[in-house]
């Protein structure tokens, strides 16, 4: 399988006041096209920092990140935005939907930014919401939706631009166990049926175990990589 994302010796530290806190201390791994990769670790292990770096939201202090052949260090800010728009989909713990937009408009937003004609964009957004089982909730605003529904809208938004890779940051972290599980199943389904690549960041071992591969992150270092036979989630 082709490598869709490469992380090479990535280091990142934060300055809090006068203290420099290392978040990542030389992390390397690859993401294969079509796999579901879980990055698992306790809080403070550097998971979120890693996800931000992989998604081009932030830049590493040293090391290299290559997404679909593009080394992110070399890209100016605008090109990074372009890359986020066309190749990466984000799913966040707190959904991060725009509160004043309907579900449909939230999903359409990346297409709007990309300059897709409105009619075409809305059709695409609607078809994805249908796929997520939200046909009846399209014209509701986020506050009228349950947590699970909001996360499915966020998932639709992440997928709307046909990204190479979806980066999910604790996608079940703000949901009850049952709903969280539904989201995990949804990702599995999209992976199986559409070959969508997922990187899921989680501190929940049950979620992590559903992945093809699991990377244990601890204190900013990769402690172990575990190839897991995928659990049957059906």
């Amino acid at each position: 399988m082709a490598k869709i994302l490469e992380v090479r010796e990535v280091q990142k530290s934060y300055q809090i006041g006068k203290i420099v806190v290392p978040a990542l201390r030389g992390v390397s791994f690859d993401v294969e096209e079509g796999e579901v990769l879980a990055i698992f670790g306790p809080s403070g292990s550097g998971k979120s920092t890693l996800l931000h770096l992989m998604g081009g939201l932030d830049r590493p202090d040293s090391g290299e990140i290559v997404v679909d052949g593009d080394s992110l260090q070399k890209l100016p800010d605008d090109a990074l935005a372009e890359l986020r728009l066309s190749k990466i989909g984000f799913v966040f713990q707190f959904f991060n939907l725009l509160p004043r937009l309907t579900a449909l408009r939230n999903v359409e937003l990346p297409l709007t930014i990309a300059g897709t004609p409105e009619k075409q964009g809305l059709e695409k957004a609607a078809s994805l919401l249908k796929l997520m089982g939200l046909e009846a909730r399209m014209h509701h605003r986020p506050f009228e939706l349950s947590g699970g529904e909001q996360q499915r809208v966020a998932m639709a938004r992440a997928l709307v631009n046909n990204p190479k890779i979806v980066l999910a940051d604790e996608p079940t972290g703000n949901l009850d166990t049952k709903t969280g599980w539904e989201i995990v199943q949804l990702m599995q389904k999209l992976n199986k049926e559409k070959g969508q690549t997922f990187v899921i960041i989680t501190h929940d071992p049950h979620v992590a175990e559903t992945a093809d591969r699991m990377i244990f992150l601890k204190d900013g270092l990769v402690e172990a990589v575990k190839e897991a036979p995928r659990r049957n989630t059906q």
């Binding site: 998604g55 935005a81 372009e82 066309s86 984000f90 991060n96």
Partner: peptide, 16 residues
């Protein structure tokens, strides 16, 4: 601020 962060995360350029 958060809204701007979302826009930027999903690919809006600074210019946009």
């Amino acid at each position: 601020t958060r809204e701007i962060g979302i826009l930027k995360a999903i690919g809006a350029k600074s210019r946009t």
